[in-house]
Design a protein around this nucleic acid. Structure first.
Length: 484
RNA sequence: GCUCCCUUCGUCUAUCGGUUAGGACACCAGAUUUUCAAUUUGGUAAGACGGGUUCGACUCCCGUAGGGAGCGCCA
C-alpha cells in the first residue's frame, strides 16, 4: 500500500462545504462555538454551505435536550446553518454498508480479539512504557479458525510501513509513520460504527470540502485519511485550529469561569460581541479589532489562523461588549435586555418590575445607561433607580451625601423644580445652575445630593436625565422624601 | 512513556530577512466632567534560552527549556 505523500490537500475546485459536528453530550462549549464560527465564516466567505451534523452515536451520553441546547446556542450566536441537521446515529446502516464494502474488498478484516485480550495488551504496553499499537493476529489468520459464537469487530487493514501525511491548512504538513497507526476498528462487534469511521463516511456523503475543527482531532485525521484512501475517496481539506485555553494557559475548565455558550448569554454578553471576540482569538486582519460580521465574512480565511493556542481574556471580551452595547440601537438593546432577563437568575422578577414601571422608562434611560455598562447585568443594575419604590433605600455613599446642608438644598430645590414648565434635562439643569450660582455653591455640591435622593446612589447617569426619565411627580416626591 | 504541535509586551495579535518591533485589551498619569463611565492625550511593557545560516535575523535550520494536544470496540 503506497503512502499518500503526494495527495493534494483537498481540491479547491469543488464547492465549499463546511460542517460543525458537535456531540450532544453537553451544552455548546465556548471552544466549540469558535469552531462553529470559523466554519460558518469560511462558508459564508466562500459562498459555500455550512452544515450541521449531530454526532449522537454515543447512545449513553447523547441527550435530546443537549441537541436542543446546542441548536439554541448557535441560533443565539446567529450562526445559521444550511439545511436540516444530520443525525449520525440514523445513518448506522450506511456506515455498516461501507464497512461491508471494505470487508468484501479485503481492505478490512474480522478481528476476534476479546475485550480482555485487548485490556491485557494495553496493560502490558503501559508496563513496558511503550505506546500501544494493536497487532491483531486476525489480520492474516485463516477465517476458518475463528472461534464460534464470538462476534468480531471489523478492523481496517492499513499499511505497516510508509507514512500518512496530513496536509493541513493551519498546521502545515504533518507526517505520521504508519507503524504507529494500528488497524483501527471501523465497526464494533455489535455492528455500530466507530467515530473515526462514521465521520469519514458522513463527511464524504455530505460532500464536505473543508473540515475545520480543533487540533485535538489532528491525530484522528491520519486515521480518517486511511479510511478515505481505502475507499478511494477524495480527501477534504483540513484545518485544525488551536484550542482556547483559560487565563492560566491550561485547558478551559470550570474554574476559569464559563465553558458553556449559554453561560455567556446569561452573563449578559451580546452575540455580536462574542463573535467578534472569538474571531480574534487565533485570527486577525491587520490591526482591526472591532469589525462587523459582514467584515469578518469578507476578510476571513482559515489559512490565516495561527497555530498557537490563545488564552481567554474576560477583560477584552468585556471591553468589546461595551462597544457593542453602546453601538446597538435602543430597540435592539431593549430586546437584548429582555432576552437576558429571561435567561438570568432572578431575571423574570426584575423584568416584572420594569414592566410595572413601564418599559418605556427603561427605553428612555438607555442613552445614559449604555455609556456605562460593559455587560447587560451592569446596565440593568444601573437602571435600578427606575424600579425602586419610595422611600428609596440609600446606599452608604448616598446617605453620606445627604448631610444637613444637602437636605436644606433639596428643600430649596423642590419648589424651584416644580416651577419648571418643561420637564426636560436642559431647563432642569438651568434651574439647578441658577440656584447653585445664587447660593455660591459648586454644581457638584448640589447635584450629588440630588443624585442620591433620586437614585439612592452616588453613581448614576446624569441627574437631569434621571429626572426626565422618572417624570415630574415621581422625581419631586423622591426629592421631598430626602429634603430636610 | 511515545507521537505531533506551539513559544513577540500581563493578554489577544501585526511583522511574511533589513521596522525607533506596530495595534488592541489591561495597567499608570493628564485633560474633560454634576458622579461613574464614555471620550481624549501621553506612558510603562515583548521576540523563552543556546547554537548555527546570512552582509543582516523575531522572521530560516538545529538543540534545550517550558506549554499544549493525541495515544479506546468515547466522541
Amino acid at each position: 500500500m503506497p503512502d499518500n505523500t503526494k495527495t493534494p490537500p483537498g481540491s479547491s475546485r469543488r464547492p465549499v462545504v463546511t460542517r460543525f459536528a458537535p456531540s450532544p453530550t453537553g451544552t455548546l462549549h465556548i471552544g466549540g462555538a469558535r469552531t462553529a464560527l470559523f466554519n460558518w465564516l469560511y462558508a459564508r466567505h466562500t459562498g459555500g454551505k455550512f452544515l450541521l451534523r449531530i454526532e449522537d452515536t454515543d447512545r449513553e451520553r447523547s441527550k435530546p435536550e443537549h441537541v436542543a441546547a446546542i441548536l439554541d446556542s448557535l441560533k443565539w450566536l446567529e450562526l445559521d446553518w444550511d439545511g436540516d441537521p444530520l443525525f449520525q446515529f440514523a445513518r448506522a446502516d450506511r456506515h455498516r454498508a461501507v464497512g461491508e464494502e471494505l470487508l468484501a474488498a479485503g481492505k478490512a478484516y474480522r478481528c476476534y480479539l476479546s475485550a480482555e485480550q485487548l485490556a491485557d495488551m494495553r496493560a502490558r504496553a503501559e508496563a513496558e512504557k511503550r505506546p500501544l499499537t494493536v497487532e491483531s493476529p486476525w489480520r492474516d489468520a485463516d477465517p476458518a479458525t475463528a472461534p464460534a459464537g464470538v462476534k468480531p469487530a471489523i478492523r481496517l487493514r492499513t499499511a505497516r510501513s510508509g507514512e500518512t501525511v496530513v496536509n493541513d491548512l493551519v498546521q502545515g504538513r504533518v507526517v505520521f509513520p504508519n507503524k504507529d497507526l494500528d488497524d483501527m476498528i471501523i465497526l464494533r462487534s455489535d455492528g455500530a460504527p466507530t467515530y473515526n469511521f462514521a465521520v469519514v463516511v458522513d463527511d464524504h456523503d455530505m460532500d464536505v470540502s473543508h473540515v475545520i475543527r480543533g487540533v485535538d482531532h489532528l491525530t484522528n485525521t491520519a486515521r480518517q485519511t486511511l479510511v478515505n484512501l481505502a475507499m478511494g475517496w477524495e480527501l477534504p481539506a483540513f484545518a485544525h485550529i488551536p484550542l482556547v485555553h483559560g487565563s492560566d494557559g491550561a485547558k478551559l475548565s470550570k474554574r476559569h469561569g464559563a465553558q458553556g455558550t449559554d453561560e455567556y448569554r446569561s452573563m449578559g454578553y451580546l452575540p455580536a460581541a462574542l463573535r467578534n471576540y472569538l474571531a480574534r482569538l487565533g485570527w486577525s486582519h491587520g490591526d482591526d479589532e472591532i469589525f462587523s460580521t459582514e467584515q469578518a465574512v469578507a476578510w476571513f480565511d482559515v489559512a490565516q489562523v495561527g497555530k498557537s493556542p490563545a488564552r481567554f481574556d474576560f477583560a477584552k471580551l468585556g471591553d468589546l461588549n461595551g462597544h457593542y452595547i453602546r453601538q446597538a440601537d435602543d430597540a435592539e438593546l431593549l430586546g437584548r435586555i429582555q432576552d437576558f432577563l429571561k435567561h438570568a437568575e432572578g431575571g423574570p422578577e426584575v423584568a416584572d418590575a420594569f414592566a410595572a414601571a413601564g418599559w418605556d422608562k427603561l427605553s428612555a434611560a438607555l442613552p445614559g445607561l449604555r455609556e456605562r455598562a460593559k455587560t447587560l447585568p451592569e446596565l440593568v443594575d444601573g437602571a435600578g433607580f427606575i424600579i425602586q419604590s419610595r422611600p428609596l433605600a440609600m446606599d452608604e455613599k448616598a446617605s453620606k451625601l445627604l448631610d444637613a446642608d444637602a437636605k436644606v438644598a433639596l428643600a430649596d430645590l423642590a419648589p424651584l423644580f416644580k416651577a419648571v414648565t418643561e420637564w426636560a434635562p436642559a431647563p432642569l439643569e438651568a434651574a439647578l445652575r441658577s440656584y447653585a450660582e445664587a447660593k455660591g455653591l459648586k454644581l457638584g455640591k448640589v447635584a450629588q445630593p440630588l443624585r442620591a435622593a433620586l437614585t439612592g446612589r452616588a453613581v448614576s447617569p446624569p441627574v437631569f436625565d434621571v429626572m426626565a426619565v422618572l417624570g415630574k411627580t415621581e422625581a419631586l416626591a423622591r426629592i421631598r422624601d430626602q429634603a430636610g
